[in-house]
């Protein structure tokens, strides 16, 4: 289905899109139909800078298991560093 399930959050950082590096300000995370991956549903993340237009986007579509492994890796790495580095 089109799950509609979406989480939006503000982020601070940079991403590399079709036009090169840019600052990103918004992330949307959703489990829904992919545009490219040959799967019914993927965990999708868009890193966006809406001020630069819709093409200012870094996109990924991961099989849910891969997405979970990625998320766990991110959290594990953050947890392993001193709070002064990660806060």
């Amino acid at each position: 289905m089109c799950t509609y399930l979406t989480k939006c959050l503000e982020v601070a950082g940079s991403g590399k899109g079709a036009a090169g590096w840019m600052r990103v300000t918004t992330a949307t995370v959703y489990l829904d139909h992919p545009a490219h991956a040959p799967d019914d549903h993927t965990l999708n993340v868009d890193l966006l800078n809406p001020d630069l237009g819709p093409a200012a986007r870094v996109a990924m579509e991961l099989e849910p298991r891969s997405a979970r492994q990625l998320a766990e890796a991110i959290l594990a790495l953050l947890a392993a560093e001193p709070e002064a580095v990660t806060s």
Binding site: T28, A35, D46, P54, R57, A59
Partner: peptide, 11 residues
């Protein structure tokens, strides 16, 4: 592009 437009609309 359709995928960029869909992402913008979703956001």
């Amino acid at each position: 592009d359709p995928d960029d437009a869909a992402a913008a609309a979703r956001a």
